[in-house]
Design a protein around this nucleic acid. Structure first.
Lengths: 118, 118, 118, 118
DNA sequence: GTGGTCTAGACCACG
DNA sequence: GTGGTCTAGACCACC
């Protein structure tokens, strides 16, 4: 975890979990690490992990079996993809376009930069 | 000012001032509104405006003449552009590219979306 | 804190913190007092301490771990020294020399005064 | 006048007047510029000049002949010298010495710097 | 009139 | 618990 990042730690943990699920390290309908285990693994406060799990529970990525721990939801991969694409196309991209317009940056300049990275 | 924005008010005030300068409403080397005037204009507390002015003073966008108020720096327009472009190319754009890669979104899809907006 | 000093309190707090770091009371990479703790210790308002911490954060003397507090930067001692020497040689000393010239005071007289103090 | 200086403008004006007197541009017992004349000469607000004159009147460097203007006191040169030396030896120099001690700067280093300037 | 500093107290997101 | 932001209101030096 990057404690000096502008992104809150509980969101960074969510990102971590999403990666675990998307790469099938954590499979659908399987149990995931307990809050204590993940907290100790990532060297993060328990409350912060709890908050991340609550967030994912709300988004129906994981669910709780009382007394047994958290499990990955059946359609978690699909849901994560949907969530991330929605965030990208409704938030990230519009902000990028808005900034481009404001600064007079053309789409061609963006394409060029993109190709340089590859 | 948008009080429900996640962006702090003092940064929104900075954005406002940047627009004033970039559109030449506030010209270089000219005096700008006093903290009290701008505070009453934008319906914002004095201290909040002061914070914004301090920020811009640090960035050498404006400077202080003792007892007379704040003035726009000589190269303010250039500096603002530099600041904003730096933020875009070093922060906004890399995040966008990173998200694209993560989600398997091609540059062509971005171009298409971009053209739809025009 | 000396409230009748011409030096603003928030700068006096900075001086206090610099001393703590230079004397290794506060060690590099260690957590320092929270704004509330230091405020209550020095009998100063929270916001004033925050101002001091912001100043030091800008100067890269301390850094923030989200939700955990401020920590001393790795090269804080070196940076503080650099800052203070810069201030001395670029501000204090030239003013002294200028005054000497203006008043026709020789370097020998300064040396004599200096030796008297020892 | 330097409006971005840390030294208040009214003190800068005082310095200007002191120089005029010390160089005999303004002679003892002679009339000096009116507040209006000096204000327009130095491009400074009237009130600021008035404050400078009040300051110098208090220090018995100049005196007022009602309806006729301000005049240089008889022993102005001597008084200015005394004032400036007092300020130097009781304020400037002790601060310099204190900073030297704090930063571990030896008197030899000061001497060296001094000789470099000549 | 100008900004600079400080206090007191509030609410917030985050850990 | 941590800091971040904001408000309201005060007093100050300075122009």
């Amino acid at each position: 975890m990057d404690f000096n990042n502008n992104k809150p730690i509980y969101r960074q943990i969510v990102d971590y979990c999403f990666r675990q699920i998307l790469t099938n390290e954590w499979q659908e309908e399987e149990r995931i690490l307990s809050v204590r285990e993940l907290g100790s693994l990532l060297q993060v406060n328990l409350n912060t992990v709890i908050r991340s799990y609550e967030y994912m529970e709300n988004e129906k990525i994981i669910f709780l079996k009382r007394g047994m721990g958290y499990y990955v939801e059946k359609n978690a991969v699909k849901r994560i993809n949907k969530l991330q694409r929605k965030d990208f196309f409704e938030t990230v991209l519009p902000e990028t376009f808005k900034a481009m317009q404001l600064l007079g940056i053309s789409i061609d300049e963006i394409i060029e930069r993109y190709n340089q990275l590859k």
